[in-house]
Write a protein that binds this DNA or RNA. Structure first.
Length: 821
DNA sequence: ATAGGGTTAG
């Protein structure tokens, strides 16, 4: 027997707005009726003549349900399956699983209806495992026959294919396979596990299909990333003369966005208008989301404005549309508008976290955090917790981010990715690596592409080539396709870890439709000192019609400045302004000044600064000061430092530069003056660190680090190296030490610089004659640069140092950068 | 009395 029940329409209508309003008005009646009645019975009255039917129907809040429950108990009807079963169902409808469960447990002679209601209570509240177990208990212990209503909820609840197939067996055992509702649920269940051929077979074998079956098949394909098949079924459906209903439209619209098919999306919009579905709540919501994905914000806004009824999804969608397309202010304004009508849900707060992260403001962050916490969303919803972690991470408050992360009872792969990325983007590479290592101990979270994109930059910033390569291997194993973002991170990782050839190989493999991969390779070429090649690639990029952005030009200009290509640099600067209309920012000006300065064109650099349309900051004056040091120009150095200290008087690095300028021409009173000046300021010191990867482990050294386990050996090695260096003519340059101490103390301070600790560690812990690779987060200190030349000669090692600027290759006492450190 | 397929996400 095939059962085809035309209940779809009627149910749809029953959930429409007027009926909800009816429920709302009835609620107060129900609550007060129950209250009056309880009053009545406690005064000694009887339970006769109560309209239970009406009360059950009108009960739409948990408060009302509890009064009703009390009413059932005092009327002596608690033993009746009929009444208790109804109570279970009311609690299920209201989503109060614990009361449903308590009521259910007290019913001695449960019927199918009661079991069905209990299962759906679990499903509604997201207790999927419990729902499936409850179904098994029903099937194995109750001895009752399942009915038409039994299977759909439990099929929705099952989260693994094994349960799905077991339930399928039960369906077959009781002969329900020809029920359209049950089969539609089976179809959808199989698509959820990617068992498309199973699903398709069931679907094809159906002798009669209603709208729900078509939609189950189509949405099954849509939600599981099978767009082409979804469209095939859609066509088949049209050929059979079945027309799309709102559910079909709502399933197919996200597919249009996914497959970048705006034409199809707009055709469906037109179709919806023609069929009078334009104002359907779900259809409108889906349209807003689709237009947002295509960055057609005006269209999205128009759909939103035209809506007659808006629910929380509508508001969330329009807010997210603005938030995700860089209009946080507009999104925030809409959020305040929403507050006056509909109360926000957890997804509203996800958008709000991102808005706060974009707009900044630690106080707003705390309020968002508090709001989410008070509602218990961090405890019961991973996404809410993740978005708060992300917000703190983006605002740079990584400690708060970590605290929220630690408080999350359930962590999924996104939680870990958010934490790792938060560390990496706040410059805390070793913390990011630690978090990634910890993540791998939890076997149930499998890293994905976002994980690789989070961790690879951390490895490239500390130069952990071996571990980066391991992640490269893992990413190949776990990814089904070659991802452009991972590809770009691999370019960056190999390039910054010194393997330029591998970086180039990856560059040729990734799709290059936007500037991101180009920027990565251009910047790698630049730090390797290959400015000509960088410019050549830039020309190719232009020929291929890829639009460069301001990062492209920062990379190009810094490449030119490191290689002394002044004319090419000026050409780039002009192309940027004139051809691409990109207004230069301070970084570009800094690169230009650095470029002129290094090339010895100090006057030109100074004039360039004087002609800047925006106020130069410390980095620009710092570039000039650095150039004055290289070329020993004391007068301009004095001007530059004066201007520099007007905008930033706390950065110790600049005092070091100035003192070095004076020391180079033996103006010791100048050195003393700078030293005093520096001491009188409250100096801010960016902690310098250097890292080295040896034996598959990254060791990080901070300047003067005494806590490393191999500390004693390292200092012993450094003392012995120091003696050998001196015999070859090394003279420590004390002008790099600003502390006012005795000379031998200064020598010790120089020796304790992080880069030297790392090099000594490398000498001790890698096989003789193998190259030593060091990474330093700041510029290499001038004395260390000099010392490294001697060390490379003494130890007969190639030493590669990458600092915040570029690579320095030390071979046999010579550095590839000349002495432009 | 109860049931399937639908929109938003870090």
């Amino acid at each position: 027997m095939f059962r085809l029940v035309p209940t779809y329409r009627s149910r749809h209508i029953s959930r429409s707005l007027p009926s909800l309003q009816a429920r709302c008005t009835l609620f107060s009646a129900s609550a007060s009726a129950s209250e009056n009645f309880l009053q009545h019975t406690s005064d000694g009255g009887s339970a006769q003549g109560i309209d239970f039917d009406g009360l059950f129907k009108s009960c739409n809040r948990v408060h009302g349900a509890k009064l009703l429950h009390a009413l059932v108990v005092v009327s002596g009807k608690a033993q009746s399956v009929f009444f208790s079963g109804k109570l279970v169902n009311v609690y299920a409808y209201l989503g109060d699983v614990s009361f449903a469960r308590r009521t259910f447990d007290h019913i001695p002679n449960k019927d199918v209806y009661t079991w069905n209601s209990m299962v759906s209570a679990y499903v509604r509240t997201g207790h999927f495992r419990e729902a499936v177990d409850c179904f098994y208990r029903f099937f194995l212990t109750s001895g009752l026959q399942p009915d038409f209503y039994t299977f759909a909820p439990v099929l929705k609840a099952c989260k693994n294919p094994l349960d799905g197939m077991r339930i399928h067996c039960v369906v077959l055992k009781f002969g329900f396979e020809w029920d359209v509702f049950v089969t539609a649920s089976l179809v959808h269940m199989y698509t959820r596990f990617g068992a498309f051929s199973y699903a398709r077979k069931l679907f094809d074998d159906m002798p009669v299909r209603d709208m729900g079956c078509w939609n189950a098949m189509i949405s099954g394909y849509c939600q599981n990333g099978n767009a082409a098949e979804a469209l095939d079924v859609l066509n088949e459906m049209r050929l059979e003369g079945v027309i799309m209903d709102p559910v079909t439209i709502v399933s197919i619209l996200p597919i249009c966005a996914q497959s970048d098919d705006i034409l199809n999306g707009m055709l469906i919009h037109v179709y919806a208008i023609k069929r009078g579905l334009e104002f359907d709540l779900f259809v409108s919501n889906a349209l807003i989301n689709m237009y947002a994905k295509f960055v057609k914000l005006a269209n999205a806004q128009k759909v939103f404005d035209n809506m007659v009824v808006r629910d929380v999804v509508s508001w969330n969608s329009i807010i997210a549309a603005y938030e995700q397309n860089d209009y946080p202010d507009r999104a925030l304004a809409l959020f305040y508008m929403q507050l006056t009508g509909i109360s926000p849900d957890h997804l509203t707060l996800v958008s709000l976290s991102s808005i706060v992260a974009q707009l900044g403001g630690s106080r707003s962050a705390k309020s968002v955090h508090g709001f989410v916490m008070r509602r218990g969303w961090i405890q019961k919803d991973v996404i809410s917790g993740n978005s708060v972690v992300d917000m703190y991470g983006k605002l740079g408050d990584i400690n708060s981010a970590r605290a929220v992360f630690d408080a999350q009872p359930v962590k999924d792969v996104v939680s870990w990715n958010t934490l790792i990325t938060g560390y990496a983007q706040n410059g805390l590479a070793s913390e990011a690596i630690e978090a990634f290592d910890l993540m791998q101990e939890y076997k149930e979270v499998a890293p994905n592409q976002a994980t690789w994109v989070g961790i690879l930059p951390a490895y490239s910033s500390v130069g952990a080539l071996r571990q980066g390569m391991r992640v490269h291997g893992l990413s190949i194993k776990t990814s089904l396709y070659f991802d452009i973002f991972v590809g770009t991170c691999l370019i960056d990782m190999y390039g910054k870890c010194g393997e330029l050839d591998d970086a180039m190989t990856f560059f040729y493999e990734v799709p290059k439709m936007n500037s991101v991969p180009w920027n990565a390779i251009i910047s790698c070429l630049g730090i390797h000192g290959h400015a000509e090649k960088a410019i050549k690639l830039f020309r190719v990029m232009r020929e291929e019609g890829v639009k460069p952005d301001h990062i492209t030009f920062v990379s190009l200009l810094s490449a030119c400045s490191h290689s002394g290509l002044v004319e090419e640099g000026q050409w780039c600067f002009n192309v940027m302004k004139e051809e691409y209309g990109i207004e230069p920012i301070l970084k570009h000006y800094g690169c230009m000044v650095d470029m002129f300065g290094r090339a010895g064109l100090l006057e030109m650099a100074y004039n360039f600064i004087k002609n800047m349309p925006i106020k130069p900051d410390a980095s620009v004056w710092g570039a000039l000061l650095g150039a004055c040091r290289i070329h020993g120009n004391v007068d301009l150095g004095a001007i530059a430092s004066e201007r520099l200290f007007e905008v930033d008087s706390e950065n110790v690095g600049y005092y070091v530069l100035l003192s070095n300028i004076y020391a180079n021409i033996q103006k010791w009173e100048g050195v003393d003056k700078v030293r005093t000046q520096a001491r009188d300021m409250g100096l801010r010191k960016t902690p310098g660190w250097s890292s080295i990867e040896a034996n598959n482990k990254v060791d990080i050294f901070y300047t003067g680090n005494q806590s490393h386990p191999k500390c004693e050996e390292i200092y012993k090695e450094l003392r012995s190296l120091n003696a050998k260096m001196k015999s070859l003519g090394y003279v420590p340059d004390y002008s790099f030490v600003l502390q006012d101490v005795e000379d031998d103390e200064k020598e010790h301070i120089l020796m304790s610089h992080s880069e030297r600790l790392a090099i000594a560690f490398g000498v001790l812990n890698t096989p003789p004659k193998t190259p030593i690779r060091i990474f330093k987060n700041l510029r290499v200190c001038g004395d260390c640069h000099n010392a490294t030349k001697y060390i490379s000669k003494i130890t007969e090692r190639e030493i590669v140092v990458r600092d915040s600027n570029r690579f320095h290759h030390f071979i046999d006492g010579v550095c590839s950068c000349g002495d432009y450190w």
